[in-house]
Simulated scan of single mutants.
Amino acid sequence: MEFCPKCGTVMFPKDNCFECKCGYKSEITKEQKSNYEVSEKVSAKENIIVKGEDVKTLPCTRAICPKCGNKEAFWWLQQTRRADESETRFLRCTKCGQTWREYD
């Protein structure tokens, strides 16, 4: 990810530049191009779902995996029911990748 040196917001690639919503632009270098891969183009109105098994950027917590017994898991919250109900907490084992959910 590239961050704007003016305002600190995440900048997104557009054509051959990184653009920030504050108006700052910077040209994409060869090194930066090798770090990014465009897998498919989407319109600005579409939601983007990140695919893949690399969730190492998610926060970790102590939780016992029901599959392997490991005591650490990545976690995230997602609204799976009506808006007036609490979110669902998803956990993924840091060792075997088993995913399970918890409700509040």
Rank of each mutant, 00 (worst) to 15 (best):
K30F: 01
E53W: 10
C17W: 05
L58I: 04
C60P: 00
E87Y: 01
K67W: 02
E37T: 11
D15R: 06
V38M: 10
N47Q: 13
E72Y: 01
S43C: 05
K33H: 11
Y36S: 01
Q98E: 15
C65V: 02
N47T: 11
I28C: 05
A73L: 07
F3L: 13
S26R: 15
S39D: 02
N47Y: 13
N16T: 12
K71R: 12
E2V: 14
I48N: 04
V50F: 12
C68H: 06
W76D: 00
K21R: 08
R62E: 15
Y103P: 02
E87N: 05
K33A: 13
I48C: 07
N47G: 08
T94L: 07
C68K: 06
T29A: 03
T9I: 08
D54N: 15
K41T: 14
T61L: 09
F90S: 12
G52H: 08
E37G: 07
C93P: 08
F74K: 07
N47L: 12
F90Q: 04
A63D: 05
S86K: 11
K21M: 09
D84N: 13
T80L: 12
T94P: 04
D15E: 15
T88R: 04
E87H: 01
E87Q: 13
K33D: 11
Q79I: 01
R62K: 15
C96W: 11
G52N: 10
K41Q: 14
E27R: 11
L58M: 12
T80G: 04
L77Q: 15
P5A: 07
K51W: 00
F74D: 04
C96H: 11
K6I: 12
W100F: 06
E2C: 03
L91F: 15
K51I: 08
E53L: 08
T88D: 02
V55K: 11
G23H: 04
L91H: 14
S39L: 13
E2W: 05
A73G: 03
C4N: 09
Y36E: 06
W75I: 10
T29L: 01
G52E: 06
D104A: 07
V55C: 03
I64W: 00
C93R: 06
K56A: 09
G8M: 10
A44L: 14
K30H: 10
A83E: 10
E40C: 00
P59G: 04
P5E: 03
F74C: 03
C93Q: 11
M11S: 02
D104W: 02
A44K: 15
T94K: 15
